[in-house]
Simulated scan of single mutants.
Amino acid sequence: MKPAFAFSAAFMALFALPAVAQEPKANCKNPQTQMEMNICSQRDYETADKALNAQYQTTRKAMRKWDADSSADLKGAEDALVKAQRAWVVYRDAQCISSGFQAHGGSMEPMLISGCQADLTRKRIAELKELTEAMGN
C-alpha cells in the first residue's frame, strides 16, 4: 500500500505547485480595462523606482565625495542622505496606502497606490538631482 500512497502524494504535490507566473499582456498606450490600468500603473512605478535607485546611487556617490573632501567636523553628508532616504521610503509607502483608500477594497485601489508611488518617486528623483547639483556634481 505504501507505493500507491507515494504515487498519490507525488501526484497531488504536482498539482499543488504554483503555475509558472506569466505577466498578463496590457496595452499601456491605451489601457481599456481596470486590470490593464493596474498593470500599467505598476509598470510605471517600477520604471520610476529603477530611475530612483540609479539617481540615489549618483547622489550617494556625490555625498561620499563631499565627506572625503571635508574636514572631520563637516563629514556626515552620506549618512544624512541614507537616513533621509529611508525615512522618505516609509513616508512614500504610507502616503500611497492612504491615497489608495479612495477606492479601498475596490479594483482600482492598486492603480491609485502605484500611481501615487510613481508620482512621489519622480518628485524624489528631482530632489536628489537638485541635491547632487548643489553638492557640485
Rank of each mutant, 00 (worst) to 15 (best):
G100Q: 06
W88R: 03
F7Q: 09
Y91P: 01
M35E: 13
V20T: 09
C96H: 05
A84T: 03
A51D: 13
G76C: 03
M37Q: 13
P3Y: 09
D67G: 02
E130Q: 15
S98N: 09
L74R: 14
P18T: 13
S98H: 12
A54I: 15
Q22C: 06
R86T: 12
L52F: 09
A62R: 00
A9K: 04
L128P: 05
P110V: 08
A48F: 04
R122H: 12
F7D: 03
G76A: 02
P24Y: 02
R92F: 01
A9Q: 04
E23S: 05
Q57C: 01
M111K: 10
V89F: 10
D49R: 05
A87W: 01
R92C: 09
E46A: 13
M1R: 12
R122V: 06
C116R: 04
K75N: 03
V20W: 10
M35G: 05
Y45V: 04
N38L: 10
R124M: 03
N27D: 15
R43M: 15
N30L: 15
D93A: 05
N30T: 12
K129E: 08
K123E: 14
M1W: 10
A134G: 07
E46V: 05
K129Q: 12
R92T: 02
S8A: 15
L17W: 01
S41R: 09
G106M: 05
E133A: 06
E46Y: 08
A26E: 11
C28A: 04
L74C: 03
A103C: 08
H104P: 00
E46I: 07
D79F: 00
E36P: 01
D67K: 01
A21I: 06
D93Q: 08
Q22K: 14
T47I: 14
A72Y: 00
T121D: 09
S71W: 11
D119L: 10
A54C: 15
K65S: 12
D49T: 02
A9H: 01
L112R: 04
Q32A: 14
G76E: 00
A13W: 01
A84D: 06
T132H: 09
K29F: 14
D44E: 15
D69W: 00
S71R: 07
C28R: 12
L14T: 07
S8R: 06
K61Y: 05
A10I: 14
A19Y: 00
M35I: 11
A126L: 10
M37V: 12
A62G: 01
T47L: 07
K129P: 03
F11V: 03
N137Q: 13
T33I: 04
A9E: 11
V90N: 07
Y56C: 07
